[in-house]
């Protein structure tokens, strides 16, 4: 996108960024092993499912049967999900294998 920041007809706000475009700015070297595993059976009894809104990469989704579906590929490895998780054993969290996962450039 070619932008002249001084053009008066530019909107007063930066463009709205879709979540896909937002995540497309981040480099991920996706490993073969899922470094986070969710036990959806445990999640079904969770009353808060706080991971769904708190995860900054939006990797947790509620399934129609009340469980949790998790996608590990675009994970920031921040740890928010296990910090907010209040169901013991629902989340197994490790680091991705060496050299894999997120690679920040401007962190």
């Amino acid at each position: 996108m070619n932008i002249d920041p001084n053009r008066p007809d530019q909107p007063a706000r930066p463009p709205v960024v879709s979540f896909e475009d937002r995540m497309a700015t981040v480099e991920f070297r996706v490993g073969e092993r899922a470094h986070i595993v969710v036990d959806s059976d445990v999640c079904r009894s969770c009353t808060t499912q706080a991971c769904v809104t708190a995860c900054p990469a939006n990797l947790f989704a509620q399934t129609s049967d009340g469980g949790i579906l998790f996608n590990y590929e675009q994970c920031f490895e921040c740890g928010t999900c296990y910090m907010v998780c209040n169901s013991e054993g629902a989340l197994t969290w490790t680091y991705p294998d060496g050299g894999h996962g997120v690679v920040f450039r401007n962190g």
């Binding site: 920041p5 960024v17 900054p56």
Partner: peptide, 12 residues
């Protein structure tokens, strides 16, 4: 105004 998103990041 006119800026372009370069990277999004998160950390605890």
């Amino acid at each position: 105004r006119g800026a372009e998103l370069k990277e999004y990041a998160a950390h605890l």
